[in-house]
Write a protein that binds this DNA or RNA. Structure first.
Lengths: 221, 221
DNA sequence: CGACTTCTTGAGGAGACTCAAGGGTGGTGG
DNA sequence: CCACCACCCTTGAGTCTCCTCAAGAAGTCG
């Protein structure tokens, strides 16, 4: 169990990653160093997220992770992650599937960034964010507190702050969503989904090809 | 073992994916339906690639896969993929790591698409492509045959064909690379890397936390 | 050799970026 | 409690890049 303060960096791009972390509470952000040398916010992490997976494939961390709010984390040593593949193949397969979801999400983001108008991209961001916030904070209905500033969101969407302001203004004028101070209010969720034009994808949580529970018990014996 | 002709579609976005495939020979391309309804080429697959992983996480395929050239594939039934997690945890862990590489690659592509100029993005594309072509065709040195047309590459880079032509013209004028007909010639690999500004990342193929061979033998017994 | 596809190139216009100034908002100290 | 200050957000004008469209050139196939 490890606590980090607002603004604190958990690890920095290029460092050797000591372990994985599960984010238990708070908001964190991954940033990567862009070609121009500036850090750009790339992904926000919500409670329940597993941090550090992309860096597994490299000898140095691919991203920096900093706390947007105060946060609590539980470290997952790499060897116990490795043990998981041995002892719990079913869980390993589920994690594999989740990482494919993440990959598909990135593909969709890339596709939107190629074809999309700014308003659509902003709408897509809030559409996906709302989904994730609801998963991490199930009591969320139509409004939630967003601890990010405009620069963060502009980076995440891939536009400049000025464009973001214009897009937010339009979305507010069309009564789709509002974002004042730290509070995001979804006024018309249907309209948001329509503007976002995200492909509807039905997740598979438990596939027929997963190793059986029996196999799991057998190999962990 | 399955053979597909040039232009043939192996599976289409939205279908239920019958199995995974290993591409043994030929070039294939993944396309996803953009927000405007047009398909956009998203990734090229070279011999040795495993096709269909992203669709594992969803009940319908997330992408269409078509043959750019004639191609040969070996189907991998899903149940044997599941069996792999049970019987060969070490291999499963390696596949997990490879999928994290793929994810990181997408993150880099996204970052470039946010910050990059057209010439840089084109250079980055050819830089990464050269790396992959060399892995699939080890005899490749400074030139290779590229069966894609400009529209494919423009989609992959995320620009319009006109911009691509301009960028290629500049790269040719600066003696960095040439692409006439179906032949790509790398004139100055150093310069290409400099223009591309891709972060140098050192891959990990065999991490200390992987399940041991012993464990693998034990659980497959 | 001719018809077709694919690629290149140019001009015009829309959208995005830069920069700078004005207005809120929150926090701090008197 | 109020005033001040600092930071963040918004907004606008000017510039530039990128996109759209269309026509000409080059290459490909029958």
């Amino acid at each position: 169990m490890r606590a980090v303060d607002r603004g604190e960096t958990l690890w920095r791009q290029g460092q050797r990653l000591p372990s994985l972390y599960i984010l238990l509470d708070g908001w964190m952000a991954s940033t990567i160093r862009g070609a121009d040398g500036c850090d750009l916010t790339f992904k926000v992490h919500l409670p329940g997220d597993l941090l550090g997976l992309p860096s597994l494939a490299f000898s140095a961390a691919t991203e920096s992770v900093t706390a947007i709010t105060g946060a609590q984390l539980r470290p997952i040593p790499l060897h116990s992650f490795g043990h998981l593949f041995e002892a719990y193949p079913r869980i390993a397969a589920m994690m594999f599937v989740v990482s494919q979801q993440e990959r598909t999400l990135l593909m969709d983001r890339l596709a939107v960034s190629y074809t999309g108008i700014v308003v659509q991209r902003v709408a897509a961001f809030f559409h996906l964010l709302l989904e994730r916030v609801r998963r991490s904070f199930p009591e969320t209905t139509y409004a939630f507190s967003l601890p990010l500033d405009r620069q963060h969101v502009a980076d995440l969407v891939g536009v400049k702050v000025a464009q973001l302001a214009a897009a937010l203004k339009q979305l507010h004028a069309d009564n789709v969503l509002g974002w004042t101070g730290r509070t995001v209010t979804i006024a018309d969720e249907e309209a948001l989904a329509v503007i976002a034009q995200m492909p509807r994808r039905e997740l598979v949580q438990d596939a027929h090809w997963f190793p059986t529970i029996e196999g799991e018990e057998e190999s962990s014996r």
